[in-house]
Design a protein around this nucleic acid. Structure first.
Lengths: 190, 190
DNA sequence: TACGTCATGTAAGTCGTTACATGATTGG
DNA sequence: CCAATCATGTAACGACTTACATGACGTA
């Protein structure tokens, strides 16, 4: 799905700025199955505006940058519904990590173990995020989509944890301290 | 990872034509974590040849199209090893299906149930393929990578199967015969 | 004062897909 | 004979990313 459709979909939930859309598609609860950067979002929004699928109102408040708050139009909703009627394209999963793993027998053992550990902590972190989103989400369809992400990441984490044991036996485990390096959240809001 | 690196990696396992590489990256045991089409593979191979990371020999045998069989060079292996030393980029998962699912409450119930059923049969098929590859594979790293795919797809399948029940209760299930509709090998013509 | 966040946007460039062009062979 | 498979390649196009340009405000 292209960025135009993505914007249309996100705006169908609530009015938003381009900045906000990028956040949702990059860090928010959409981010586990899509991505978009400013360079694609802003042009997409202009185009959608030209086609009258969205409109915007300028908001100029004191002490804040001027912002354009986009809303989907009726026409936009109709187009979105129409798009949803087509068959969705196939899911795509791209993993540089898995590509690397094909050559683990050609790397020093510690190198691959580090990759595994890094992966495990990345997935753990992502999984925590998804689980958090799952709890504080009452929109059923989002629940479904986030649950899907939770299912995948849980499975991957389990798989990696069973696999890492196989490699831990092979030699000593020297350089893998990044475990709690990112976990620094002890002072959430002081 | 770009197509150049992908070709280099695949050729590190065995000599192959561009056609074969595309098959591996599209249908073979690489296809669950990468993709590449002719339009990117052939230019990549030319480029790699210019850089002397691969070479090819022409094979002109009776009754077959002429083909270029590519081999990785020593220099190519060195470059590959060097690339593997860098941190792999993050995995990316793109799902149009999940995007669609966010709007299931805005579709007719049968539409989403069809999507679910389609998804379930697609994943089942893919899972069978992966499991088959897992059994007849003695290369350990490939085993790891395929096992990863099996883990993901098993989890997704389980998730979808539990979810589909929730939607099955809501209305009767009329149009989902596409099981063997694609399998149509018989062509009745005059 | 300097950095981080909010906020919008453009231009250049990368990367890859789709569709096309070509042609031989095999099997039903 | 027709379709599928094997086989190579190019050109046009599309989609997105990166980096840049701009600027105001809050806070440490």
């Amino acid at each position: 799905m292209n960025v135009r459709t993505l914007c249309l979909g996100i705006l169908s939930f609530s009015d938003m700025t381009g900045y906000d859309i990028r956040k949702m598609a990059f860090e928010g609860s959409f981010s586990h199955f899509c991505e978009a950067s400013y360079g694609s979002i802003y042009p997409a929004l202009s185009q959608l505006t030209n086609e009258e699928l969205v409109t915007y109102r300028d908001e100029v408040s004191e002490g804040k940058p001027a912002r354009k708050i986009y809303s989907i139009t009726e026409k936009g909703r109709a187009v979105l519904l129409h798009i949803l009627h087509e068959q969705p394209g196939p899911d795509r999963f791209k993993s540089e990590f898995l590509f690397y793993s094909l050559f683990y027998d050609k790397m020093p053992p510690s190198q691959f173990r580090n990759l595994l550990n890094k992966k495990i902590s990345d997935i753990s972190e992502k999984l925590e995020g998804l689980k958090g989103a799952l709890d504080c989400c009452d929109h059923e369809p989002s629940h479904f989509a986030i649950g899907y992400g939770v299912a995948i990441n849980t499975a991957v984490l389990d798989y990696l944890k069973t696999q890492v044991e196989k490699f831990d036996g092979e030699a000593e485990t020297p350089p893998c301290p990044p475990k709690d390096t990112f976990k620094e959240t002890s002072h959430e809001r002081s």
